[in-house]
């Protein structure tokens, strides 16, 4: 699939994620819509993963450190054939394995996540294991920007450069919003580029809701030698549904029936506009 087709797919997957949240009556729609293009770029253009490779030791490893965007991940894994749609429809229902945050009982999920700040250290461990085993895989970690206030993120960042993990790529979904407000007002992450560079990382930055830009930037980041790579993907929280865009209140809001219909309508329109 080319970038245009994938951009359309990202809108279609947003419709599906919104449906899961609407029917499951729980989820993080603003963050799902923000991170969707990052996940689509990774899963359809970069990650060497598939249902047939789940136990292949050479497969790429993906960690959704911002585990609250589970719906976006689940819709992609389902689309890629990791599990059937009917199963995913149990999302957030009593007894469903498709929990509000990912767990590794779900096909395609490498590690339970959602306790923020955990993903990067786990990724460091996977990258070190890959190096020890002489495996060619890369480890991709997607973090939120609000998550950067967790101290363990910086412990992991320090270790990743100390061990010169150039098989580790982190993408920050930089939507500048968290539950209680802007990242700048809640706990200012400052100049992320210089902070990570001072930690010994190679840093790239790109528009985070454009597949073509993400694809090109991640390709460049993969070429990083001797240092871990960071991509700051500048996104819009709620991207695709204008009423939710840049609105912190949509972080964890379940749409009403009327809102859900509006969401579907707007996503369809935006999808149709892509040429």
């Amino acid at each position: 699939m080319n970038d245009t087709e994938l951009s359309r797919k990202a809108f279609l997957l947003r419709e599906q994620a919104a449906g899961l949240i609407y029917r499951g009556k729980s989820g993080h729609i603003g963050s799902d819509f923000s991170v969707m293009d990052i996940l689509v770029t990774l899963f359809y253009l970069h990650l060497n993963v598939s249902p047939a490779q789940q136990t292949d030791p050479s497969r790429d490893r993906f960690i959704l450190s911002k585990g609250h965007t589970a719906e976006a991940l689940y819709c992609i894994l389902c689309d890629k054939g990791f599990f059937p749609k009917e199963e995913l429809e149990t999302f957030c229902q009593f007894g469903s394995k498709y929990t509000g945050h990912p767990n590794k009982n779900i096909n395609g999920v490498e590690i339970n996540s959602g306790s923020l700040g955990h993903g990067l250290p786990v990724g460091v461990g996977m990258a070190l294991a890959g190096r020890m085993q002489g495996q060619p895989y890369r480890v991709y970690v997607v973090m939120g920007d609000g998550e950067l206030a967790e101290g363990s993120v910086w412990e992991g960042a320090m270790a990743a450069s100390h061990f010169k993990l150039d098989n580790l790529i982190v993408i920050i979904d930089r939507n500048r919003l968290q539950i209680s407000g802007t990242t700048e007002s809640v706990m200012n992450p400052g100049d992320l580029r210089s902070r990570f560079e001072s930690f010994g990382w190679q840093v790239w930055e790109c528009p985070g809701n454009r597949i073509d830009a993400l694809d090109q930037t991640i390709s460049e980041a993969k070429a990083s030698v001797g240092a871990p790579a960071l991509v700051i993907a500048n996104t819009i929280k709620g991207y695709g549904y204008s009423a939710a865009e840049n609105q912190a209140k949509w972080h964890h809001k379940v749409p009403s029936e009327e809102e859900y219909q509006q969401i579907l309508e707007e996503l369809k329109e935006r999808r149709a506009m892509i040429e």
């Binding site: 030791p57 490893r61 590794k104 490498e110 590690i111 700040g117 955990h118 990067l120 250290p121 786990v122 990724g123 460091v124 461990g125 996977m126 990258a127 070190l128 294991a129 890959g130 020890m132 085993q133 480890v139 101290g151 363990s152 412990e155 992991g156 320090m158 270790a159």
Partner: peptide
């Protein structure tokens, strides 16, 4: 915390 996270990541890879 980082140490335990790293161990978790390694364990998923068979260590």
């Amino acid at each position: 915390c980082n140490m335990v996270g790293i161990a978790a990541g390694m364990a998923t890879c068979g260590k």
